[in-house]
């Protein structure tokens, strides 16, 4: 490949080409299949070279992270039995005299409220089974509710509402991985109502799992959306817990 081609491809990929140069190359690529192949080959190399160095950098970061964590170990190992005893006393005192430090589950418990369920049957009124499932859900019989929601879906009644209440039942049963998978599908729902609710509960699952940076980002997304029904709640939670975002 000639040097000017290298430079032309490079400028295109690095976004340093002018609009005119970019269009000219795109025209050429469309007209010349061989040039298109050369371009793709170059793009793979261009990305590959950078990926190789990025991988090196990630290995360094990983090593630093592991070293930081490992530094804690010698500290404890060097201490004598006396220090161990002091620590034991301190820990015992902490347990006796201070309130327990809450876990992610405690934080989750303090922010989570069971979804109230549907006020109407949202197009499923002709399905008494859905009625039953919703009733079970509202009564806290989540396993039964989940089974019925799933059988309704299997019978061809798949829609966002069913998926959402399946996810809600899973959440109440603390099957968070499955609940997250169902909610993930609803994050692109056409219904604002379902989408916003899905975002809200995905945030809560991240809290439950202790993924605070991700939870924090969801909280930021929710609180910065003026139309979001959980915006105010999100702002209050952020004020209280200060999730990283």
């Amino acid at each position: 490949m000639e040097e000017h081609r290298f430079e032309q491809f490079e400028a295109y990929l690095e976004a340093t080409a002018t609009e005119e140069q970019r269009k000219e190359l795109e025209r050429e690529l469309k007209a010349k299949p061989n040039l298109q192949l050369e371009f793709e080959e170059f793009r793979t190399l261009w990305l590959g070279i950078q990926a190789v160095f990025l991988k090196d950098e990630l290995d360094d970061i990983h090593q630093d992270l592991m070293l930081d964590q490992a530094k804690v170990v010698p500290f404890w190992r060097k201490r004598s039995w006396t220090i161990a005893a002091i620590l034991l006393v301190l820990i015992a005192s902490a347990i006796l005299f201070f309130p327990k430090e809450s876990s992610s589950k405690d934080i989750y418990a303090s922010i989570h409220q069971v979804d109230p369920g549907l006020p109407s049957l949202m197009g499923l009124a002709d399905k008494p089974e859905f009625d039953k499932a919703m009733l079970s859900f509202k009564k806290g019989e989540y396993t039964l509710a989940l089974e019925t929601f799933i059988s309704l879906e299997e019978a061809g009644g798949q829609n966002d509402t069913l998926s959402f209440y399946q996810a809600m039942s899973m959440m109440e049963l603390e099957r968070m991985g499955d609940a997250q998978a169902s909610l993930d599908q609803l994050l692109t729902s056409d219904s604002d109502f379902i989408r916003y609710k899905a975002e809200w509960y995905v945030f809560q699952i991240q809290v439950f799992e202790g993924n605070y940076p991700i939870a924090g980002e969801w909280l930021k997304k929710i609180s910065s959306n003026e139309d979001h029904p959980f915006r105010q709640k999100a702002i209050e939670i952020q004020d209280e817990f200060r999730f990283p975002n």
Binding site: L54, E101, E240
Partner: peptide, 27 residues
């Protein structure tokens, strides 16, 4: 007493800044 997650400040605030930084391989 409720637990407070440890808040570490990210080096970039908007998603645009993040994308730009990742694109230029900002360590």
């Amino acid at each position: 007493m409720k637990a407070k997650p440890i808040s570490l400040s990210p080096p970039f605030s908007t998603q645009n800044e993040w994308v730009e930084a990742l694109s230029r391989q900002d360590k």
